[in-house]
Amino acid sequence: MGKHIIKNRQIVEDNWQHLADEESLPASGDIIINYRRWQENRGSLKNFSGRLGITIGGEVSAETIKDDLAFFQLIAIAFAEFKDGRGYSYARLLRERYGFQGELRAIGNILQDQIYYLHRCGFDSFDLDQGRDINAALKAFSDFGTYYQPAVV
């Protein structure tokens, strides 16, 4: 059974597989690769039979992959540190500037207290670290009922 995540404000089972560096490419399925693998194996990955996702975040900006968006059904933005706010800008740029329409997932060190802001910046799925309370996180979408400034939603 896969891990549970939040997607479109519901708790669902996740069927994407994060492919670690040393793991070889499976024949099919939905996989999430990191940016380095994309750089190195772009040619073969383009022909992958299943759905493809990529992880960016930190030093790997949204701009780095802006010309490749058509290949990805999912973009995961990793938060190594919950205080690193670059991912919020990456998300808005992907949605508002580069027109990414697929699944935009926040992964890593994120707090339930950040869900509301992340959501407004364009994230529609959330893969919380082990030990985080996913039910509490689900409630955080309604921390605020209104806002002052335009964003993605």
Binding site: F82, K83, D84, G85, Y88, S89, R92, Q114, Y116, Y117, L118, R120, C121, F144, Y147, Y148, Q149, A151
Partner: peptide, 14 residues
């Protein structure tokens, strides 16, 4: 003040 209050993109600046 209003624009900056709970600005979702700029709550975790450097």
């Amino acid at each position: 003040r209003q624009w900056s209050t709970f600005h979702p993109e700029f709550a975790y600046l450097p």
